[in-house]
């Protein structure tokens, strides 16, 4: 690959840089830094207050629990659907591909409402049946996991599909001809090839799951210490004039997401060049 020559720096170069930096600063850095600033207004007081509030700790625990389940579901189904989309020809493939982007396009509130219609305990399509066998979806943890998995569904798939297309089937065919069955081929050839795309998709999916609000608010019922996730606590505390706790909880949510992204940046190999 030819390395591109560095262009001479002109006044325009600096103008463009300033515009980009100002844009990112006012849109992302400054607002987020204000949350951090307000969190630490009185030292670590706000954090300790928040962490000693059982409403907050229960919500954080539920959020992490839900996010992990949503990520596990999205990873397993994401790999399956990606392989289906890339490796097989079947009628309706392009429809499926378009449907996968739906959760990104539709408002999460609509997602929550749709799930409530399908799985609601009294009026929902499946709800009454599931209730009768003792499995409550709406206003319970399964519903929250369902909603979270729904909104973060495309993230793993959209990372995997281009990578699978790029690696092609040659290596897999070579493995088959060398005696590897389908599972051995997947585990020893396909999975290592898509490893980084998968990790990236999982982290994006995790970050999205931790931050989900709209869909969860509708389906969870927002019951404190039962179905209230961290984002819902932030909203409630803010409205209840407990801003300090709201800031501290926001800060903790941001911290988890940033930590995940930092871990990825450290783990990801510098050289992404492939074999050919």
């Amino acid at each position: 690959m030819a390395s591109s020559r560095v262009q001479p720096k002109t006044a325009g170069t600096y103008v463009r840089r300033v515009i980009v930096i100002a844009y990112l600063f006012f849109l992302v850095v400054w607002p987020v830094s204000l949350v951090v600033k307000h969190t630490f207004d009185g030292g670590f007081g706000n954090i300790t207050t928040a962490l000693s509030d059982p409403v907050v700790t229960d919500a954080l625990r539920l959020t992490v629990y839900v996010a992990i389940w949503a990520v596990v579901i999205n990873t397993v189904f994401g790999i399956g659907v990606s392989l289906l989309l890339v490796r097989y020809e079947f009628p309706g493939r392009s429809v499926l591909s378009a449907l996968i982007d739906l959760p990104l396009a539709v408002s999460p509130v609509v997602v929550g409402l749709a799930l409530l219609l399908a799985y609601g305990g009294t009026n929902g399509l499946f709800g009454p049946f599931l209730n009768s066998i003792g499995f409550q979806v709406a206003f319970a943890t399964p519903g929250i996991i369902l909603a979270t998995a729904f909104v973060s569904l495309p993230l793993v798939i959209r990372e995997l599909v281009p990578t699978l297309q790029e690696i092609g089937t040659d290596q897999e065919q070579a493995a088959r001809s060398l005696g590897a069955g389908p599972w051995a081929t997947f585990r020893r050839i396909t999975l290592p090839s898509i490893k980084w795309a998968l990790v990236y998709g999982v982290v994006l999916s995790l970050a999205r799951s931790l931050g989900e609000f709209g869909a969860v608010k509708v389906i969870s019922g927002n019951i404190a210490q039962q179905t209230q996730t961290a984002t819902l606590v932030v909203e409630q505390k803010y409205q209840d004039f407990e801003q300090e706790t709201a800031y501290a909880t926001s800060f903790l949510l941001t911290l988890i997401a940033i930590a995940a992204l930092v871990v990825i940046t450290i783990l990801r190999p510098k050289d992404k060049s492939d074999g050919n």
Binding site: D170, Q171, Q173, A174, R176, S177, G179, I189, D274, N276
Partner: peptide
Amino acid sequence: LPAQKRNVGFVFQHYAAFKH
């Protein structure tokens, strides 16, 4: 017989090296 049971060595035009 599926490919993995034929005990056939196959060499591809573009090597199909296991890159990792």
